[in-house]
């Protein structure tokens, strides 16, 4: 490189400079033009390829969309067909079940009717047997039953008689007690009445002179009993 500069410097300082310079400039212009053309060409190619790519992309999208539409439509058709099939199945099943239920019902009724008849027959048989058994009780058993009842009745009567006797005794005692209390009350009332009447009558009938005499009698008695003695 130093050598090239040194060469150029030599030419520039030499007398052949204008020719060389012109040559160099020409070469540079050629080179520059070529370069610019090359860049332009590359740019143009890139744009072309980009446009093409965009066109391809849109085309792919459109295709994909169409494909998807087709798939959805097919799926919907299949689903519709399937649903139609399902309804048929359901209708068929309903009809089947109804028939089965009716059948089951008839069977149960038949079974129930048979059972009722059986029970009724058993009951009739049992009643008949009971009637036969009752008829078969002997006279002696009935007599025994009657005797037992009579004994029980006698026992009950005795018990009741005893109870009545006890009650009567208790009642008699209560009456006696009540009588005694009432007599006591009468006695008290009588005493009160007699006292009040007597007090009233005697108090009014005793004269002041009699009172004085009775007091003096009391004093005399006190004297005789030594009441006033020291």
């Amino acid at each position: 490189m130093i050598n090239i500069f040194n060469f150029l410097r030599v030419f520039a300082t030499s007398q052949s400079l204008p020719v060389v310079t012109m040559l160099i400039l020409f070469i540079l212009i050629i080179f520059a033009t070529s370069y610019f053309y090359y860049v332009y060409k590359r740019e143009k190619d890139f744009e072309d390829s980009h446009e093409k790519l965009e066109e391809d992309y849109d085309s792919i999208l459109l295709k994909a969309h169409k494909k998807a539409e087709e798939i959805v439509t097919q799926a919907a058709d299949k689903a519709k067909a399937l649903l139609m099939n399902t309804k048929d199945v359901k209708d068929f099943a309903d009809k089947d079940i109804e028939t089965a239920v009716q059948k089951e019902k008839d069977e149960i009724l038949q079974s129930f009717s048979a059972s009722i008849n059986g029970i009724r027959n058993d009951a009739l048989n049992y009643v008949k047997k009971m009637a036969d058994d009752t008829q078969s009780l002997t006279q002696s058993e009935l007599m025994s039953f009657r005797d037992g009842m009579q004994k029980n009745l006698v026992q009950v009567r005795l018990s009741e008689t005893q109870k009545l006797t006890d009650e009567a005794k208790k009642t008699f005692e209560e009456i006696q007690d009540f009588k005694a209390k009432q007599l006591e009350k009468v006695k008290e009332q009588l005493s009160d009445i007699i006292v009040r009447v007597s007090e009233s009558v005697i108090g009014q009938s005793i004269t002041p002179a009699d009172h004085e005499k009775l007091i003096l009698e009391g004093l005399e008695q006190a004297k005789q009993e030594g009441f006033f003695d020291a």
């Binding site: 007090e199 005793i206 009775l214 009391g218 004093l219």
Partner: peptide, 19 residues
């Protein structure tokens, strides 16, 4: 209530001479 007679009390002694 004594009706007649008297009750006496003297020198700490007491006696009922009432009727």
């Amino acid at each position: 209530n004594l009706i007649a007679g008297a009750k006496l009390s003297y020198n700490g002694k007491y006696k009922d001479f009432s009727y």
